[in-house]
Every structure is written in C-alpha cells, then in structure tokens.
C-alpha cells in the first residue's frame, strides 16, 4: 500500500487530495500507467507527464525512480512559491 497525494490542478482533475493505492508497480511511471488505466479523470490529470513533478517520501524524484520501500508518492505541477 502506498499513499498517493495530489496537489493543485492535479488534485482538482482527479477530484481528491489523497488515496491509498494497492500496487505492485516497480517505478513511478508504472504507477502512473496503472492510475491512467483506472478512469478518465486520471488520464486527464496525467495526460502530459512533462507538465508534472513527483515526490517520493517528500523528496523530488524522477518518473523512472523505483518505488521499492516508498510509503508516500505525490504528484503536482511545477511549484510556484516565493
């Protein structure tokens, strides 16, 4: 089980801020593929992966990063702080 979090317009498109996902996905990209296959709202949120960022256990990561041992995955658009 992995906690998957969504922020900003990713959260709006998927329609929820957080969910627990049962997955055997080896990498972030594999997890995205599983989510996209679920429902249209996931496909809409993940339509352009280059417009998204991912964090694994609250550290920025790449989409080809392995998920082994990871407890929390977060998807969000490029950050706009400051």
């Amino acid at each position: 089980m992995i906690d998957v979090l969504y922020f900003a317009w990713v959260r709006e498109r998927i329609g929820l801020p957080k969910e627990r996902v049962e997955t055997e996905a080896a990498t972030v990209a594999d997890l995205v593929e599983e989510l996209v296959a679920r429902e249209a709202r996931y496909a809409a949120a993940f339509a352009d992966i280059s417009a998204l960022r991912v964090a694994l256990d609250q550290e920025l990561a790449e989409f080809d990063a392995p998920l082994a041992g990871v407890r929390e995955v977060a998807f969000f658009p490029p950050m706009t702080g400051g």
Partner: peptide, 14 residues
C-alpha cells in the same frame, strides 16, 4: 534562497 523557493519549495498559487 529566493531563486530556490520559487521553484523548489512545494507551493502552488491560484
């Protein structure tokens, strides 16, 4: 600090 906060701290403005 400012340059990094802009694009590496997880904030989103609406």
């Amino acid at each position: 600090l400012m340059d990094y906060l802009k694009s590496r701290a997880p904030f989103w403005k609406r």
